[in-house]
Design a protein around this nucleic acid. Structure first.
Length: 520
RNA sequence: GGCGGGGUAGCUCAGUUGGUUAGAGCAGCGGAAUCAUAAUCCGGAGGUCGGGGGUUCAAAUCCCUCCCCCGCUACCA
């Protein structure tokens, strides 16, 4: 046990200038499935999520609402924490960048980068829109008909120069390229790897990493007029949580470097370029992989307040159930690509795969055992070719699932499992145990035993995705808590005949439309 | 503008070292069964493989060209 390999996986930290939305939920669910999978597969997992609470937008939102930034995050962050609980996520920590441990950590990494000669004081210059409170690149501005230069929103911009600390990102181009070249799967999916590589190959400019125009952030060591900016503080959360700056601590030595950062494709550059450069500069190992997932669209439309299709994850969980929701996202959308959701798609998927294919198979076999075998799991007699074939398919699942999980192909894991579920339904129909009840009860017992064995393996492997439903199914199959790890999968273990099973009950109810639906 | 990815059944997609009647899931249609959450099983149907041209005995697959979509990135005097 002491030699358990470790696995450190994180989500991005969410920006709590509003309530959590479906994008936050998706990333958390997917990462949770990965964390649970690795735990069940024998890893000592550290799963981190949290909130990125600094920055100008938080400060502005708070000002608009007439409260302090601190009060704004104090109000919003609990909503994110509640969402993690509601979605049955198993994060081991929830980091907030406003915590003292994180300020200490951010200042420490800054000092290390400075000591390495990579931070210098310069001037940040650009076109600034007072009205938008934002800088725009030259290319985003144009000279209007009245001769006044204006930004993309049409507001006037003026040339402003502000003192700023810079990070010598330009010095890290080759080191980054070497890193990407050293592992073609450093950034997944592969398209993203190529994008990042070509971006870095195109040359890197030094990065402005401090601001003086607002103060809601981590103060720059030795120059409190500045606060850290552009992700220095946010990215550092990943090492804070495992004990940085105490890099001799047991947790840091145990868990860093992280095995996997799961992020959205919109923040890939920060996580695959800047973060590694910061760490290299500070003399800290870089994370081992960055996986960039896609976005979810409501019927192909981006979620936005103006379109009015912002979906509340809590409402979704209430409407469909947590496990069906988790299942839908991870089964329907190839992980790494964009995906679509709609009420019809969700209902179709959960009814077909969960209620009909898996739930109904469990119900029909278990109720037969309850009625005709007094609730005692019958033993398997001599196995037929059909029995052997379906058992072999089930036994092969673990290897295929691990292979898919090596590159975070969550949908492929589910595909593997549900292919066996489909085969099990064909097997069950082909063997027709209800007919065997009259002609050959022993053979009927064998078929039911075999079916339960398939269900057992399916349920064990489905736990990362639908944890509480899988647990209920395993309860119904008489599988004890300690028998639910992946070491119990495969031909070496079989469902325990002779065990008295609890009375069966449906696990996945069919979704039937009510008057109101949370998603169009 | 540059680089990259893609356009295959109603929907989502698989299928490229070129080779027999182009596949899957879902939807739809027909049938069987009735143990089960009206669930399950079986079967037919459904495609000019973006358009055009070329190479080849043979092209969704290779070459040329055109159209369209998406991502990253640059530039706009």
């Amino acid at each position: 046990m002491a030699s358990k390999p470790r696995y450190y996986v994180s989500t991005a930290i969410s920006y709590p200038n509003g309530p959590p939305h479906i994008g936050h939920a998706y990333e958390l669910i997917a990462t949770d499935a990965i964390a649970r999978f690795m735990r069940l597969d024998g890893y000592d997992v550290f799963f981190l999520t949290g909130t990125d609470e600094h920055g100008q937008k938080i400060q502005q939102t708070a000002a608009r609402e007439g409260i302090s930034a601190r009060d704004l995050v104090a109000r919003n962050v609990p909503r994110f924490q509640a969402m993690a609980k509601r979605l049955d996520c198993s994060n081991d920590d929830f980091i907030r960048t406003t915590e003292p441990r994180h300020h200490r950590s951010s200042q420490a990494i800054w000092e290390r980068m400075a000591r390495n000669g990579d931070i210098y004081l310069g001037k940040y210059a650009g076109w600034y829109s007072v009205r938008d409170e934002a800088y725009y690149a030259q290319s985003e501005t144009k000279v209007g008909p009245n001769g006044v230069r204006q930004g993309p929103t049409g507001t006037p911009v003026e040339w402003v120069e502000e003192e700023s600390y810079f990070f010598r990102l330009s010095a890290y181009q080759q080191k980054l390229l070497d890193l990407y070249a050293s592992d073609p799967q450093y950034i997944l999916p592969k398209e993203r790897h190529n994008e990042v590589t070509s971006f870095v190959r195109g040359g890197l400019q030094d990065l402005s990493i401090s601001r003086t125009t607002f103060d809601w952030g981590v103060p720059v060591p030795g120059d409190p007029r500045h606060v850290m900016y552009v992700w220095v503080d946010a990215l550092t959360n990943y090492i804070t949580a495992v004990g940085f700056p105490d890099d001799d601590s047991a947790t840091f030595r145990r868990y860093w470097p992280a095995d996997l950062h799961v992020i959205g494709k919109d923040i890939l550059r920060f996580h695959a370029v800047y973060w590694q450069a910061f760490l290299m500069s500070a003399g800290i190992e870089v994370p081992r992989r960055v996986f960039s997932h896609g976005f979810l669209f409501n019927r192909g439309e981006k979620m936005s307040k103006s379109v009015g299709n912002v979906i509340d994850p809590f409402a979704l969980a209430d409407a469909y159930g947590v496990d069906p929701l988790r299942f839908f996202f991870l089964r329907e959308v190839p992980f790494g690509q964009d995906g679509n959701y709609s009420h019809e798609a969700i209902v179709n998927r959960i009814n077909a795969d969960l209620a009909n294919d898996l739930g109904n198979l469990a119900q029909r076999s278990l109720s037969m055992i309850a009625r005709q075998f007094a609730g005692v799991l019958p033993p398997a007699g001599a196995l037929s070719e059909a029995d052997r074939a379906i058992l072999a398919a089930a036994d092969a699942m673990l290897d295929a699932a691990r292979e898919a999980m090596r590159t975070q192909q969550l949908h492929a894991v589910l595909n593997t499992i549900w292919a066996v579920v489909a085969q099990a339904n064909r097997y069950f129909a082909g063997e027709a145990p209800w007919a065997l009840a009259k002609t050959d009860p022993a053979r009927q017992g064998t078929v039911l035993n075999t079916t339960c064995e398939i269900l057992r393996q399916v349920a064990i492997l489905a736990q990362p995705f639908i944890p509480s439903s899988a647990a209920r199914l395993l309860d119904l199959l008489g599988v004890s808590a300690e028998e639910r790890y992946f070491t119990w999968l495969g031909a070496g273990r079989r469902v325990a005949a002779g065990r008295a099973l609890p009375p069966p009950a449906p696990i996945f109810p069919r979704y039937v439309d009510a008057e109101t639906t949370p998603v169009r």
